[in-house]
Design a protein around this nucleic acid. Structure first.
Lengths: 121, 121
DNA sequence: GTCATTACTTACAAATTTGTTTGTACCATA
DNA sequence: TATGGTACAAACAAATTTGTAAGTAATGAC
């Protein structure tokens, strides 16, 4: 996400991992914010400031970085309206939409297993 | 995974994020290695050294750390056999098994979208 | 007694990710 | 003319993740 790397074990491992379809996909939604951003954007367009409001403590920098990365990966589409106060809207691309059912299942898993843990404590 | 944190924005964000079922689940399989380890373990028990062989450049330290974390989260079960050269086997727990169909879908997404990208370049 | 094997652990270092702060460009309105 | 809102960018700093190198314990083979 930042930029320069080399030919270290770190990079070799990264290559190995993104060769695999499973981890290739996992990497697209990895990191702290991407998956929640995609989820929020699930059914509607949102402006930068609207997205920011969804996450109380996210820094603008983080939000920008994540959105840029998602745009790069063609998971979100960014539309700029040349309006008086700037207005930018973000929405999911078709390939990102295909993630939504997977998110549902993940979410269901999370719900179920969080409940399990709580019942034991 | 290391240990000490505080009450920083970093931590607040983390709490916010693990409150959500979706990201709670995502965090269980986050990081570079967890998802591949779970996938490898999908249908069979594997010893430490067998797992290591699956990932050419993983360090023993990383493998241990990931396995410990997965054990902590009750996604893998660790069995030690008191044998002459130590023998330890890892296998998925029932709740981890429920991840496997999700992995399939992620993998399918990855395959499809990797192909899409390649056809354009 | 020395070596090899397995599954680690420890101390250390490098790389990456995440967050903080400050600042910018653009008009419109008071 | 000063101020305010939006969507960022840049420089810097903190936190976490990942990797390197070396060592440990038990035991049987040589």
């Amino acid at each position: 996400m930042t930029a320069r790397k080399e030919n270290s074990t770190y990079t070799l491992n990264e290559k190995f991992i993104t060769d695999c379809d499973l981890t290739y996909a996992a990497n697209k939604i990895g990191g702290r914010w991407k998956i929640v951003i995609l989820d929020k954007l699930g059914n509607r367009k949102l402006r930068f400031s609207e997205l920011k409001k969804e996450f109380p403590y996210i820094s603008e920098r983080m939000l920008t970085l994540q959105l840029r990365a998602l745009e790069q990966d063609e998971l979100v589409k960014r539309t700029v309206y040349a309006a008086v106060p700037p207005r930018v809207e973000y929405e999911l691309t078709p390939i990102a939409l295909e993630f939504l059912p997977i998110f549902c299942q993940l979410s269901a898993w999370g719900k179920k297993n969080k409940a399990l843990k709580e019942n034991r404590s």
